[in-house]
Nucleic acid binder design. Structure first.
Lengths: 151, 151
DNA sequence: AAACAATATTGTAATCATTACAATATAATT
DNA sequence: AATTATATTGTAATGATTACAATATTGTTT
């Protein structure tokens, strides 16, 4: 989604394109690293000094419900958010905690068991060790979830 | 896994097959409904009156790390546990909250992006509305996560 | 433009699953 | 039986999320 479309996208869904909401969407677009509420809040506070964490929560709930944001609950206690809604999987490195995106044809997953289910959301989560950590003999926590998996 | 093998499975992994641990495994085998810690604790307390919730947490962590139990974090605030480790997906009905298992060939998902990653765990989570709720014009919360998806 | 209603934002307090940790109990080993 | 190691227990602390009431902002009507 192009940054300037945010306002349109919100209006289209009868969501008031308020300053805070647009800023949060813009932030997600700029930081496609699956940030947590706290990261979003801390960073945006520099822009909007009066910002409340509750607003961040509210906004993300609204965006998620509207399908404009993807909720990632890969196991962290903290929920993460992703503005990319196209199909892709998430890989979490159990060593450094980084979360990588990877391409995957989720529609090919259509299971016949689900023929009578209405499916709104599909998530694929893998876990393991990323190449960086495999190479470095499992060191510490340098990368914090920004990568895209592409050898 | 057959109930009687639990002791063997634990020993094989150098995990002491204590009473509590065996009971928890047995419970998971009998209740393949992806129970929460609280459900396990509450039910097993009838058997083991001194049982502590901390023990349930400890045991599940150990079992998960040993690969004997699958951790489900599909979005509930509460983590759920599944003793079935064979590949299958989980579908959560956003209306009634039920969690269904469905068959899926997760290995077919191998993404070339991940060729240099070491993958330990693969999870597929779908969300939407289950047939029961679709049929009933979206009523309330009757089924609490015990189904298997098979029309 | 003023008044009013509707909606958004904010801040604080409450909730609740999970973890930390110290104490006790149990099992394994010598 | 004595000693060490491991498991279990209970309570207190943590921390993300939610509830809620108060304030601010926006939109609408007259």
């Amino acid at each position: 989604m192009k940054p300037l479309d945010f306002e349109q996208e919100l209006k289209k869904r009868n969501i008031n394109p308020s300053h805070q909401r647009l800023k949060i969407m813009e932030y997600l677009a700029r930081h496609q690293c699956h940030p947590t509420v706290d990261q979003i809040y801390t960073d945006l506070q520099k822009d909007i000094s009066t910002l409340s964490k509750t607003t961040v929560y509210n906004t993300l709930h609204i965006l998620a419900q509207a399908g404009l944001v993807r909720v990632i609950t890969i196991e962290d206690k903290e929920t993460r958010y992703d503005i990319l809604t196209e199909d892709h999987g998430h890989f979490k490195c159990e060593n450094c905690g980084a979360i990588y995106d990877f391409q995957i044809d989720i529609n090919a997953l259509a299971s016949k068991d689900l023929s009578h289910f209405k499916i709104y959301d599909k998530n694929v989560y893998f876990k393991g060790i990323c190449p960086k950590c495999l190479g470095n003999n499992l060191p510490g926590t340098e990368n914090l979830s920004v990568q895209t998996a592409q050898s």
